[in-house]
Each structure stands twice: as structure tokens, then as C-alpha cells.
């Protein structure tokens, strides 16, 4: 119940964040712009609308997760609002989980708005809405949950600016980590071990990317879906556990 109170309060705080509305506005603008672009596209414009729409939701979701997420904990410490919370009979990890859940609720609300925008565009442009579109959206949201957990982890021990840089770096490396594995095959044994260790430690965010499947109508079965969900949720849980340990040991000066 206390986690829920903190989550609701965080959600309320996020709703008063102007940045959120700016990002949301641009996301909708970009999704809508695919209508214009499709008019100057030769051939199959369905692919363009789907690709641009899903990519916009992904990109702006990540931007919201990072720029709102990094402030979650560091802002509470900087503004000293955390003093009155930690002095109450609330374990620190509950506070952290509450903040995380609050941001996930915020992201969910934002994603819903963007998805409604996309569905309207798809409807208007007569693009068939398949179950794959929804699977893709679900995994985009899962990726946002992982990125948020990364942002929360960094913000438990470093400043907001550094957290943003680190989280963006993890996001980018996370999408390129497949290349990292390929690259390791060409190295000697020791270097291979190091590169592989990095590969397995960082999240493989390409696993959450179903845009290719949607555009090329490739099936993504329920078993694959369940496995990817399990991977994402386990990874986020592991990051939050790490964040809780760091947060528990911290002095609030």
C-alpha cells in the first residue's frame, strides 16, 4: 500500500512536468507526419507508416523514461524531500520501488496516448492492424521498463546529468550488443571472454525490437513472446535489486 502511495505521488509529480508534454507533442507530430510522407512515397506506404509510427513511440518513450527517470531519485535527494520519507517507517527499497512504479504508470499513460495516435493514423490510411502490431507495442513498453530501471539504478548514486548520459549509453550499446558478440568471434581467447562478459552483462535491447517482424509480416510466436517477457522482467528486477542495495547503503547529505 505504501509503495502504491509513493507511486501515485510520483505519477502526480510527473504529470506536472512540462517536459513530458513537449515530448508527447513531438511524438504525436512525428506519428502524424507519416501521413504526409506516405503521400510522397512511391509504392508500399504501409511499411513507412508502421516503421515511423513504432519508431516514434519507441524513441519518445525512451526519452521520457530517461529524462523523467533520472530525476526520480536524485531530485528527491537534491531537494531534500527524501528526508521526511526516509525518517518514516518505510524501508528504503519500498521508496525506490514506489518511485519506479510511479514512472512506469506515467510511461504507460504516455504510451497509451501515442498508441491511440498511431491507431488513428493506421485506420485513416487503411493500414491493416494485425496482432503483431500489438506484440511489438508490448515489447516496446517492456524495453521502456528496462530503461527506466537502468535510469533509476544510475540515479541512486550519481547526478541527474551523469545518469542521463550513462542511461543513453546503455540504451545505445543495448541495441548494438548483437554486433559485439559477432565482433568477439574475431578476437583472441582472453579478449573474447572480456567482450562476452560485457555482452551478457548489458541488456540486449534488440530482443524487444519487433519492427522488422511487423513490416515483413514475420510471425513471432507466443513462446518467443513469453521468453522475451521473462527476459525483460528478470533484467528489470535485477537492476532494481542492485539499485536497492546501493540506495540502502547511501548517506543522504
Amino acid at each position: 500500500m505504501r509503495i502504491l502511495s509513493i507511486a501515485v505521488n510520483t505519477f502526480r509529480e510527473n504529470l506536472r512536468e512540462k517536459l513530458l508534454y513537449n515530448l508527447l507533442f513531438f511524438a504525436l507530430l512525428m506519428i502524424g507526419s507519416s501521413i504526409l510522407l506516405s503521400r510522397i512515397t512511391l509504392g508500399d506506404y504501409h511499411r513507412l507508416i508502421l516503421d515511423l509510427g513504432l519508431a516514434s513511440i519507441n524513441l519518445f518513450g525512451v526519452l521520457i523514461a530517461i529524462f523523467v527517470g533520472i530525476g526520480l531519485v536524485s531530485k528527491e535527494v537534491d531537494r531534500k524531500t527524501i528526508y521526511t520519507i526516509v525518517s518514516k517507517p518505510i524501508p528504503r527499497y519500498e521508496f525506490l520501488l514506489g518511485k519506479y512504479c510511479g514512472l512506469v504508470i506515467t510511461l504507460f499513460a504516455n504510451t497509451i496516448v501515442m498508441v491511440v495516435g498511431l491507431l488513428i493514423v493506421l485506420q485513416v490510411m487503411d493500414v491493416p492492424i494485425t496482432s503483431l502490431v500489438f506484440k511489438s507495442l508490448a515489447l516496446i513498453f517492456l524495453e521502456l521498463m528496462v530503461i527506466t530501471a537502468v535510469a533509476v539504478l544510475f540515479s541512486t548514486f550519481t547526478s541527474a546529468t551523469l545518469s542521463a548520459i550513462f542511461t543513453l549509453a546503455v540504451y545505445m550499446i543495448g541495441h548494438l550488443s548483437g554486433d559485439l558478440k559477432e565482433f568477439s568471434k574475431k578476437l583472441d581467447e582472453v579478449s573474447q571472454m572480456v567482450v562476452n562478459a560485457i555482452y551478457y552483462t548489458l541488456p540486449n535491447l534488440e530482443r524487444f525490437n519487433l519492427k522488422g517482424h511487423v513490416i515483413h509480416h514475420l510471425d513471432f510466436g507466443m513462446a518467443d513472446m513469453a521468453l522475451t517477457l521473462a527476459y525483460g522482467l528478470t533484467y528489470a528486477a535485477f537492476l532494481l535489486l542492485l539499485a536497492s542495495i546501493v540506495f540502502q547503503r547511501r548517506d543522504f547529505q
Partner: peptide, 10 residues
Amino acid sequence: PESPYFYDYL
């Protein structure tokens, strides 16, 4: 706390 800062949007 000293010079308390609270959630000012509430």
C-alpha cells in the same frame, strides 16, 4: 528537517 523542502505541487 531543517528548512524543509516538500512536494510543492501538492
